[in-house]
């Protein structure tokens, strides 16, 4: 009788102890919970990685492997011919520098101006400041397409279509792609540096310029890195504006970027084939196969991946240091 009662009480204790060991508590997680988290993370991570992996592997395949349904993950032989074809078809030797400059210059200009603006909004009180902040938000919410038509006309009136100026000038004046986000990031960052530092510097006789360059900028390096990466990536990846401003909507022009070539890859490839093997090669069969397309895609995102992995540490750290989102 007595024994049975003891066994009863034990069951609930076992349940509680078991639960705490398997599932754990907020300060100490059990292994069941842990493995659940890892399972989710890894499976989701795989889902994220799947297209990229697929792209990489396909880009190394030969034609026979592509047609062979049994070859999915490991090609029977690696080949670099696809890359060679893609490099030639996309005219990388000609389009590489426009692509880099078309992303780098606006990104630098945008980061610098957004830093200035964010600093002004975070550190100074002046009349109409509230209004200006509201306007910054308005520039984010209003879709850029409303402005597309008049801007295009303005640029074409000044004869700037087809040059990088169309991208750099708006960025230099703080109206590049999604500038408002960067302004908010910088504002948040500059708000965090203590005001007493400024005051100390001011007492010591530093000018406003010196305070900005000597104190504010070094303390906001992560914000600069985040903004630069984002800005660079967005300019690099943009084809809508570049297609319009750099080429005026035409397929064949003297200024082109790798992304634009990728967008019109079928046409570009056909052109390349015509040049490479004479006009009689022009037939329906000469469409770029998947592997070449994938190789071209890899080529266009490879520089971005490189930058991302180099600056990745600062990137994540910058997010940790808060401030990517305005409150």
């Amino acid at each position: 009788m007595r024994k049975r009662k003891k066994a009863d009480t034990n069951w609930s204790a076992v349940y509680v102890r078991g639960k705490s060991r398997l599932w754990g508590r907020p300060n100490h997680r059990g292994w069941l919970y842990q493995s659940f988290i890892y399972l989710l993370l890894i499976s989701l991570g795989f889902v994220y990685l799947y297209p990229i992996l697929d792209m990489f592997i396909t880009s190394f395949m030969t034609l026979t492997d592509l047609l062979d349904a049994s070859v999915k993950w490991i090609p029977t032989q690696f080949t670099l011919d696809n890359y060679k074809e893609a490099l030639e078809a996309m005219n990388v030797d000609k389009t590489f520098w426009p692509t880099v400059l078309g992303a780098l210059l606006p990104a630098l200009a945008q980061t610098a101006v957004c830093a200035l603006t964010g600093y002004g909004l975070a550190r100074y009180d002046f009349p109409l400041k509230k209004l200006l902040m509201a306007l910054v938000l308005v520039t984010f919410i209003v879709p850029p397409y409303i402005l597309l038509v008049p801007n295009y006309m303005m640029f074409s009136d000044y004869g700037m279509i087809g040059t990088l100026k169309t991208l750099v000038y708006p960025a230099m004046l703080g109206q590049g792609t999604k500038s408002a986000i960067f302004i908010l990031i910088f504002m948040q960052f500059f708000k965090q540096t203590p005001l007493s530092l400024d005051e100390a510097a001011r007492v010591d006789g530093a000018s406003e310029k010196r305070i900005f360059f000597g104190i504010a900028i070094p303390l906001a390096i992560p914000a600069f890195i985040i903004s630069f990466i984002f800005s660079f990536v967005w300019y690099w990846n943009d084809t809508y504006f570049t297609a319009l401003y750099l080429t005026g909507g035409k397929v064949k022009t003297n200024v082109s970027t790798m992304l634009l070539e990728l967008q019109n890859f079928d046409a570009v490839y056909l052109e390349h084939m015509k040049q490479a093997s004479g006009w009689f090669a022009y037939s329906d069969g000469n469409v770029a196969n998947e592997a070449i397309k994938m190789a071209a895609t890899v080529l266009t995102i490879a520089p971005l991946l490189l930058i991302y992995f180099c600056l990745q540490k600062y990137f994540v750290e910058g997010i940790d240091r808060s401030g990517i989102t305005g409150e």
Binding site: G120, F126, L132, L135, L147, V149, N151, M172
Partner: peptide
């Protein structure tokens, strides 16, 4: 403060308000 805001404000007028 206004000097810091100046480039953005000019850009706003040229590339945003006027085209709008």
């Amino acid at each position: 403060g206004w000097i810091f805001m100046l480039p953005w404000t000019i850009g706003f007028v040229i590339f945003f308000a006027y085209p709008l």
